[in-house]
């Protein structure tokens, strides 16, 4: 028993050591992803620049966002919206200064059916019609607008995705 206890203590120590080493780069570099309870808590520069919020919002989805993530002190923002029915993530809206800084969504197109470029909101957008890993529809549209990269992913029909994305308006918070 004593030896088993000692070994479990060793496992805990190794685990704790890994967690400490995991924490170091985030603490030094400050590049970690921060979760916010509400949009009121997001970094000032993002709040001032504006958060893209949809004015068309399917009834099946819950407002406010279930998850709000920022990274790089507000350089990137991601909002996840859950279904009222089963709390599953159905919609994600991401914005960032560069497309490479977009925070990945919990719902990602995995099995691509078709991809196309199309004119959208006065810009060229990239539309992906696909399914998620579980086989459900997982469509995404990405484009650049006024120096901001945007990506909307929706577990629903293409028409609804485009309606949501079309309705996005930058809104200054506080």
């Amino acid at each position: 028993m004593r030896r088993t206890f000692l070994f479990l203590l060793t496992v805990l120590s190794v685990t704790a050591g890994l967690m400490v080493f995991n924490w170091i780069p985030r603490a030094i570099g400050g590049r970690g992803t921060v979760e916010h309870v509400s949009l009121q808590g997001i970094p000032q520069r993002l709040a001032t620049r504006g958060v893209f919020r949809p004015s068309y919002f399917p009834e099946l989805l819950q407002w406010p966002p279930a998850e709000i993530l920022t990274r790089g002190g507000g350089a990137s923002l991601l909002m996840h919206f859950n279904s009222r029915v089963d709390e599953r993530t159905e919609l994600s809206i991401a914005q960032a200064a560069n497309s490479s800084d977009l925070i990945p969504s919990r719902i990602e197109p995995v099995n691509v059916i078709t991809e196309k470029r199309l004119p959208f909101r006065g810009h060229r957008a990239h539309l992906t019609i696909a399914t998620c890993r579980d086989g459900s529809p997982c469509n995404r549209i990405r484009w650049q607008e006024d120096g901001i990269s945007l990506a909307v992913v929706f577990r629903g029909p293409e028409q609804d995705l485009l309606r949501i994305a079309q309705s996005l308006i930058p809104e200054k918070i506080r």
């Binding site: 685990t15 967690m19 080493f21 995991n22 780069p25 590049r31 970690g32 992803t33 919990r106």
Partner: peptide, 24 residues
């Protein structure tokens, strides 16, 4: 395969080597 996703790294991983590569 989900072990290599952003959310596994964020929510579950004990250690994420990627963060050390991102540290400059």
């Amino acid at each position: 395969p989900d072990r290599n996703t952003f959310y596994f790294a964020r929510d579950m991983a004990l250690f994420v080597s990627r963060d050390w590569f991102a540290l400059s």
